[in-house]
Structures are given as structure tokens and as C-alpha cells.
Design a binder for these strands. Structure first.
Length: 206
DNA sequence: CTCTTGATCTTCT
DNA sequence: GAAGATCAAGAGC
């Protein structure tokens, strides 16, 4: 058998602590989306025990022309207009799912898009779901991580502090970098993308 | 490495 | 009818 065709994942670097901190309470999200977004870097997201460390996010707000909530509520985005601490899941380009965490207060319609994870829990399950061996590519994009964690429309509007979702605070204080958001055509100048400095699990380098 | 294209659902014009 | 908070595969360099 030709083992040389199978990429090795031994010694994949883990730049942050993989220890789980305290569970995040819903109150964590009841403040400015621009405070929550960088504070999520280093936290751990699990769905039914499978997931990893958040290494990349983007902030959106109803006053932001790039946000889904900018033009008011629709059937798709109605969860964004609800209370903080819930998930907002939407279909992207007709094929992928993307997951957000609603922030601030009811009616504020702000949310943090989860863009990349460093896989730590349930890697074999994620490899099966993604039909991919390379750990670095399992969750390196918003549509990739939902496939790896099996997040879909069934998870839209769920509380972030109850099963099947689980969020744990980071245990240390990571180096967070900011940059321009990815894949948008409006308000492209706003530096509301946040990432773990030097992470090898980003959707794109900063 | 970069560039192009197809996949196909929701919203907007 | 067109665009969009995307991804993977294929062509070319």
C-alpha cells in the first residue's frame, strides 16, 4: 500500500491552550459585538462534544451595510433581531451553512460570524464528515466548520449555553489580530475580522 | 502559487 | 434576473 499519498498530521502545532475554561454564560454576549468578537478568540466551540478552539471570527451589526440585518428583519435573519446568546445559522451560496452568535440586546441585530476553528475534540468524526484527512483544513472556513460540526438549519435559534451546543471560555490571553473582512463587497474597509495571531488554522492569513 | 468556474438557496432589484 | 458573510476542483504559471 502506498502510504506516501496520505498526508501526515503528526505534530500539528497547537498555538493555544486546549484546556477548557468555564462554560460561557449567555450574559457574555450581552455587550458590544466589537468587544465580544475579539474575546471569542481562544474559546472552544463544541457541538455534541465535537469541535475546537475558535481562531477566526467577524463582527456584523445592523448599521453595517455588509450585515444581513442591515435592511431589516426577514425570515432568514429574524434570529439576529432576538436576544443575545443564540445561534444564527444561514445558508450560504445555496450550499453551505454558516453559524453566528447573536450579541448585544434584543433588536440590536448584531452577531459574530464564526470563520475558523483549530480542531481539538472529535477529530476522527470531523475527518469522516469532511472526507478529509488534513486537520488544518477541517475547519478553516465558515462553511467547512459547519460541515465538520454538522451544524445546519436545525441549529438556527438555539441557545449557546445548552445542549447540543457548548462554549467554553479561553484559559489564557491570546494575541488577537484584526484585519479586513473576507468575501464581502460592501463596507469592505471596516477592520472587523479578528484572529489568533500566527494560527495555522485560519481561512486565510492576516 | 494564482485564476476561473460550477454548485444552487435566499434576498433584493 | 442578479448578487451573495463559500468551497473545491481544474487550468495555467
Amino acid at each position: 500500500m502506498d502510504q506516501s499519498r496520505i498526508p501526515s498530521n503528526r505534530n500539528v502545532p497547537g498555538p493555544v491552550s486546549q484546556n477548557l475554561g468555564r462554560p460561557l454564560k449567555r450574559a457574555f454576549f450581552a455587550r458590544s459585538v466589537h468587544e465580544v468578537a475579539p474575546d471569542l478568540i481562544g474559546a472552544t466551540l463544541l457541538v455534541n462534544g465535537v469541535g475546537g478552539v475558535i481562531v477566526e471570527v467577524e463582527a456584523y451589526h445592523h448599521t453595517d451595510p455588509a450585515a444581513h440585518s442591515f435592511r431589516g428583519p426577514t425570515p432568514r435573519n429574524k434570529v439576529m433581531f432576538g436576544p443575545p446568546g443564540f445561534s444564527y445559522v444561514y445558508r450560504s451560496y445555496g450550499i453551505h451553512w454558516c453559524v453566528n452568535f447573536v450579541c448585544e440586546e434584543e433588536g440590536s441585530a448584531s452577531a459574530v460570524l464564526i470563520r475558523a476553528l483549530q480542531p481539538t475534540h472529535g477529530i476522527p468524526a470531523m475527518r469522516r464528515r469532511r472526507r478529509l484527512h488534513d486537520v488544518r483544513s477541517l475547519c478553516s472556513g465558515p462553511g467547512k466548520l459547519t460541515e465538520a460540526l454538522r451544524i445546519s438549519d436545525e441549529h438556527n435559534g438555539l441557545p449557546l449555553d445548552a445542549s447540543p451546543l457548548a462554549l467554553h471560555a479561553r484559559t489564557g490571553k491570546p494575541d488577537v489580530v484584526a484585519g479586513l473582512r473576507i468575501g464581502i463587497t460592501r463596507a469592505i474597509e471596516l477592520p472587523w475580522r479578528y484572529g489568533l495571531k500566527g494560527s495555522k488554522f485560519l481561512s486565510k492569513r492576516f
